[in-house]
Design a protein around this nucleic acid. Structure first.
Length: 470
RNA sequence: GGCGGCGUACCCAAGUGGCUAAGGGAGAGGUCUGCAAAACCUCGAUGCAGCGGUUCGAAUCCGCUCGCCGCCUCCA
């Protein structure tokens, strides 16, 4: 079975057939860098990171483009509020974004173009739309004329009449049709501005993606992705602009991740009900956030609660405990992965990136690994360990050095508790001595004492060790 | 109002016509242990919002009802 993906354009799950195999072009809408990213952004980031990784794992040469919107109303407003330049605001948020992405274990896209670095391309595209009669100039603004694009609404499956019906659309005298949208906005004093044939101004939001996607991927290209909240109007407008200008299909497969809700309400900056990626990562670690996201199919709604992060952190801890144990047990690092498990994994991922099912394969493998160690079947260790390593290249879960991960977890814990490694070492030595004397009352008292500080003591055949209580 | 989607065990969640309804977290019992912890084993929904229907057979298809969400405005 080969990869099948859900295409928003058709509403169906279809076989994925790239235009120019083995090459695949993928464009994903990134973020507007006016503020820190939250868990909702994390979901989009992780979802398409896995798509990217899986396509590569399948042998495709993927060009993955993810943009930054670094000019828009909110950036301007936020910068003015803070009394800094838009450039300063953008720079700060780009740095923060980079940290978030790294915490989430996402690979770098092939290209990360910024809107402000592609103004000439946008101007050229707008000019082409004007030339083809699909756009018109009004007072230094340029609007796209939706009535001139007959298939407008084909992605979001809505008709122009329906949209106006329930409409809270701005009544703008300069627009010929209420649903017409801005390609170019004349700038007000003090705003970032670029020269254009229609006067100084700045681009509308949608045009940047049309211009940059086509610049780096050509047209048509294979995959266009983003959050489900972008289907309308953003992606609908991208299609109108790109297909209107070039007279050919824009993108073949449209993939959209479901939104993150919190208390059954959409998580969003405007509602103020969000947890930032940095906060989530500080609580449970970025990899746990990733695991939380991948536990649900990417198109389903995902309800966030901090406790779910804790669940994920515990599950992740089990993975790394097992891997550390396997490495200590001398799993052959050169062994090939287990073909049966890999096949199960492939079938799950081929089914529209069913990461929840793929994770079940990972956890089954973890159990296999522990059982093999319990039963001293050392020859199975290598292949099972290799299987986890293989799956981790796609899921981005369990791919780090387990000893390093566990050690970092311990250091983090000690620091947050204000405890020194010596304190723990002394307590453990004291307890070991007590146990040697068979003074179990003292030993248990010490263990309880440490437990209250979040330190879990384990007596193993190799001696006493401690871990962070999860 | 238009369009799209959701409701599966204590919590999360996969499964969309047919083996005993994955997996994770929590829980119970067991093995191991001085006792624990970890790990493993076992248990856990005779039932998949409710009601009807199609079918030899449905959580899965159809209809209705109830509850909930998203988009239609900036939004991942």
């Amino acid at each position: 079975m080969a990869l099948r993906v859900h295409n928003t354009l058709t509403g169906k799950i279809e076989a994925f057939v790239p235009l120019h195999p083995p090459k695949v072009g993928m464009y994903v809408c990134g973020v507007t860098v006016y503020d820190r990213s939250h868990v909702g952004h994390a979901r989009a980031l992780v979802t398409f990171d896995v798509v990217f990784r899986y396509l590569r794992w399948c042998g495709y040469e993927v060009t993955f483009v993810r943009n930054f919107t670094d000019v828009d109303d909110k950036i301007i407003a936020r910068a003015q509020q803070a009394g800094i330049s838009t450039a300063e605001l953008v720079a700060a948020n780009l740095t923060a974004f980079d940290e978030d992405v790294r915490a989430l274990g996402c690979l770098r896209p092939t290209k990360e173009p910024r809107a402000t670095e592609h103004i000439p391309e946008m101007v050229a595209l707008i000019q082409k739309l004007i030339d083809r009669g699909l756009a018109y100039v009004a007072d230094g603004d340029v609007y796209f004329c939706v009535e001139k694009f007959p298939s407008y609404g084909k992605l979001s499956k809505r008709r122009l009449e329906d949209m106006i019906a329930g409409a809270r659309v701005d009544v703008d005298e300069r627009k010929r049709h209420p649903m017409d949208f801005a390609l170019w906005k004349a700038s007000k004093p003090g705003e970032p501005t670029w020269p254009s044939p229609w006067g100084p101004g700045r681009p509308g939001w949608h045009i940047e993606c049309s211009a940059m996607a086509t610049k780096y991927l050509g047209q048509p290209f294979d995959i266009h992705g983003g959050g489900a909240d972008l289907i309308f109007p953003h992606h609908e407008n991208e299609i109108a602009q790109s297909e209107g200008a070039h007279g050919c299909e824009f993108a073949r497969y449209w993939l959209h991740n479901g939104l993150v809700t919190i208390g059954a309400e959409k998580m969003s900056k405007s509602l103020g009900n969000f947890m930032t990626v940095a906060e989530a990562a500080a609580r449970s670690g970025g990899e746990a956030v990733r695991l939380f996201v991948l536990g649900t199919h990417y198109r389903s709604p995902l309800d966030f609660a901090p406790e779910r992060l804790d669940d994920a952190a515990r599950a992740l801890g089990r993975i790394y405990d097992t891997l550390a144990r396997a490495d200590d047990a001398g799993a052959d690092p050169t062994a090939p992965p287990d073909a049966v498990r890999i096949q199960e994994f492939r079938e799950a991922m081929d089914d529209d990136f069913n990461t929840a099912r793929a994770l079940a394969v990972l956890f089954d493998t973890i159990r296999d690994l522990n059982r093999a160690m319990d039963e001293k079947q050392t020859t199975n260790l290598g292949p099972l360990r290799a299987t986890v390593r293989e799956l981790s290249t796609v899921l981005g879960i369990g791919g780090n050095d387990p000893h390093v991960v566990l050690e970092e977890e311990k250091q983090r814990h000690l620091r947050s508790q204000g405890l020194s490694p010596e304190y723990v070492a002394n307590k453990l030595a004291e307890r070991t001595e007590a146990r040697r004397r068979r003074d179990f009352a003292t030993a248990d008292r010490i263990r309880q004492e440490l437990r209250e500080r979040g330190i879990a003591v384990e007596d193993t055949p190799q001696g006493t060790v401690w871990k962070v209580a999860r």
